[in-house]
């Protein structure tokens, strides 16, 4: 008893926790019996927990705010009937995940504007009543992938060993054992620098800092919900990390190639890629002014322009004006830091 293998107590047989129900009498007392019970109509918990996590993925927070805990210490659902309806819908569709996500993203609730009015702020500050569409800062991996995607750098290759994109010096060294095989970080070359963040090599004693700073879980324990902080250290990542600076530069190069000699049209081309919309009548003059100021600064300091254009492994475009490209890089860098871009 009490974990001692040589102190045998009363014989017990496999069963599910009593609070959750019972296995049917004729069910085999093994994993098959448990599996059948898990997905049976008599056990609504599996489908509820699953749809709550899908909901969280799309809406930023679950109908149950504690997706890891549906027990007495967890939060009660904000919309219990909806949760049940979704659970039954999911189960009866044959557990069709893709169909379920389509249902969520095509719903009127999801397609509402995310705008916050004073009334909504007063009555529904945390959007618990779903009075507006979801709006939340994207996760660490998504942010990096997004910057790579809009700049055209993102590798579409799937699978394979983990990769080592840019990382500040000394991250592994200070925590590594002498002679350990992950003491020295050696950055990858070529395409591996631009793979999806999912493939980034993860040393748990010193995770990639640009992921960690944006609340990526440590991967030491399972995590079904992430924190979503908003800190100046995050601003420093998206402003200064070579990964983001290179993405801005390559985006600027592409924009100048696509729309040469027309600042306004070039900015609009870039806006469609980064913001998924054109600049409005207030923003365009702001952006034009920014671009021209930056260009003037870089025309006075072509060395600085060259330095900026040298960030990252991707080749520069020698045909483009250095000052112009550096200036547009700074505009792109600015846009990749917009609240609108960092936020879903």
């Amino acid at each position: 008893m009490r974990g001692q293998y040589d102190q045998v107590g009363e014989e017990v047989r496999a069963e599910v926790p009593a609070a959750l129900g019972r296995l049917p009498n004729d069910a085999p007392r093994n994993r098959l019996g448990l599996a059948r019970w898990l997905v049976s109509a008599e056990n609504p918990l599996t489908a509820r927990v699953a749809v709550n996590r899908f909901w969280q993925e799309v809406f930023g927070q679950g109908l149950v705010r504690t997706p890891e805990d549906f027990g007495i210490m967890g939060a009660a659902p904000t919309h219990p009937e909806l949760l049940d309806w979704l659970a039954v819908e999911f189960r009866e569709s044959g557990w069709d995940v893709k169909r379920f996500f389509r249902l969520l993203v095509s719903s009127a609730t999801y397609r509402q504007s995310a705008a916050v009015t004073p009334l909504k702020l007063e009555r529904d500050r945390d959007n618990g009543l779903l009075s507006r569409g979801p709006r939340f800062r994207m996760d660490a991996e998504v942010l990096r992938d997004y910057a790579l995607m809009v700049s055209g750098l993102l590798s579409q290759r799937m699978g394979g060993p983990s990769v080592k994109p840019y990382q500040p010096e000394g991250i592994w060294d200070v925590v590594g054992l002498p002679g350990g095989d992950t003491r020295e970080f050696v950055q990858d070359k070529g395409e591996n620098v631009h793979r999806r963040s999912l493939y980034t090599f993860w040393k748990r004693m010193a995770p990639p800092p640009n992921m960690e700073i944006f609340n990526a879980p440590s991967r030491e324990v399972c995590s079904v919900r992430r924190e979503r902080t908003n800190t100046p250290l995050q601003a420093l990542v998206t402003l200064n990390d070579p990964q983001f600076v290179e993405a801005a530069r390559v985006l600027a190069q592409r924009a100048m190639r696509a729309v040469p000699n027309d600042d306004a049209a070039c900015l609009q081309w870039m806006a469609r890629r980064v913001l998924c919309r054109p600049l409005d009548a207030v923003e365009l003059p702001l952006a034009l002014q920014s671009l021209r100021e930056m260009r003037a600064l870089y025309e006075d300091d072509l060395n600085a322009a060259s330095s900026l254009l040298g960030v990252g492994i991707t080749a520069g475009d020698a045909d483009l004006s250095k000052a112009g490209c550096a200036a547009l890089t700074m505009v792109a860098n600015q846009w990749l830091n917009l609240d609108e871009v960092l936020t879903k």
């Binding site: 500040p168 800092p209 640009n210 700073i213 250290l233 420093l236 990542v237 402003l239 200064n240 990390d241 070579p242 600076v245 920014s290 100021e293 930056m294 600064l297 300091d301 060395n303 600085a304 322009a305 060259s306 330095s307 900026l308 254009l309 040298g310 960030v311 550096a326 700074m330």
Partner: peptide, 16 residues
């Protein structure tokens, strides 16, 4: 980490 501006970005460029 990441406190320094990228090469070629002066404080005045950053401020603007």
């Amino acid at each position: 980490l990441y406190i320094n501006n990228p090469p070629g970005v002066s404080n005045s460029v950053r401020r603007r």
